[in-house]
Simulated scan of single mutants.
Amino acid sequence: MDLPKNTFKAALKARQQQIGLWVSIPSAATAEALATCGFDWLLVDCEHTPNDPANVQAMLQALAPYPAHAAVRPGWNDAVEIKRLMDAGAQTVLVPYVQTAEEARAAVAAVMYPPRGVRGVSGMSRATRFGAIPNYTARANDEICLLVQVETKAALGQIEAIAAVEGVDGVFIGPADLAASMGHPGNMGHPEVKAAILDAVRRIAATGKAAGFLASDPALLREVVAAGCTFTAVGMDIGVLVSGAKALVAEWKG
Rank of each mutant, 00 (worst) to 15 (best):
121 V>S: 13
121 V>Y: 15
121 V>F: 15
122 S>Q: 12
122 S>E: 09
123 G>R: 10
123 G>M: 14
123 G>K: 05
123 G>L: 14
123 G>Y: 13
123 G>P: 04
124 M>Q: 10
125 S>Y: 06
125 S>N: 01
125 S>C: 06
126 R>P: 02
127 A>L: 03
127 A>G: 03
127 A>P: 04
127 A>Q: 02
128 T>Q: 01
128 T>M: 06
128 T>H: 06
129 R>F: 08
129 R>I: 05
130 F>P: 00
130 F>H: 10
131 G>W: 12
131 G>S: 07
132 A>N: 13
132 A>E: 15
132 A>R: 15
133 I>D: 10
133 I>W: 09
134 P>V: 08
135 N>E: 15
136 Y>R: 13
136 Y>N: 07
136 Y>T: 11
137 T>G: 11
137 T>W: 11
137 T>L: 14
137 T>A: 15
137 T>I: 15
138 A>Q: 15
138 A>C: 07
138 A>R: 14
138 A>W: 08
139 R>E: 12
139 R>H: 11
139 R>F: 00
139 R>W: 03
140 A>E: 05
140 A>D: 07
140 A>V: 14
141 N>F: 06
141 N>T: 07
141 N>Y: 06
142 D>G: 12
142 D>P: 04
143 E>P: 09
143 E>I: 09
144 I>G: 03
144 I>N: 09
144 I>M: 13
144 I>P: 04
144 I>R: 12
145 C>L: 13
145 C>E: 09
145 C>I: 09
147 L>R: 07
147 L>W: 11
148 V>D: 07
148 V>M: 07
148 V>F: 08
149 Q>H: 10
149 Q>D: 04
149 Q>A: 07
150 V>N: 03
150 V>W: 05
151 E>N: 07
153 K>V: 10
153 K>W: 01
153 K>A: 14
153 K>I: 05
154 A>S: 08
154 A>C: 00
155 A>D: 05
155 A>E: 08
155 A>I: 01
155 A>Y: 05
156 L>S: 01
156 L>P: 01
156 L>K: 02
157 G>I: 08
157 G>D: 11
158 Q>K: 14
158 Q>C: 14
158 Q>E: 15
159 I>H: 12
159 I>C: 01
159 I>K: 12
160 E>Q: 14
160 E>K: 15
160 E>I: 14
161 A>T: 11
161 A>P: 13
162 I>Q: 12
162 I>S: 11
162 I>G: 07
162 I>W: 13
162 I>H: 13
163 A>E: 07
164 A>G: 05
165 V>T: 02
165 V>K: 04
165 V>Y: 02
165 V>G: 01
166 E>Y: 12
167 G>H: 02
167 G>L: 04
167 G>C: 01
168 V>W: 13
168 V>T: 09
168 V>F: 10
168 V>H: 08
169 D>F: 00
169 D>Y: 04
171 V>P: 00
171 V>L: 14
171 V>R: 04
171 V>D: 00
171 V>S: 00
172 F>N: 00
172 F>S: 02
172 F>V: 07
172 F>T: 01
172 F>L: 03
172 F>A: 03
172 F>K: 03
173 I>V: 12
173 I>E: 04
173 I>W: 00
173 I>M: 05
174 G>L: 02
174 G>R: 01
174 G>K: 00
174 G>W: 02
175 P>N: 08
175 P>R: 05
175 P>F: 01
175 P>S: 05
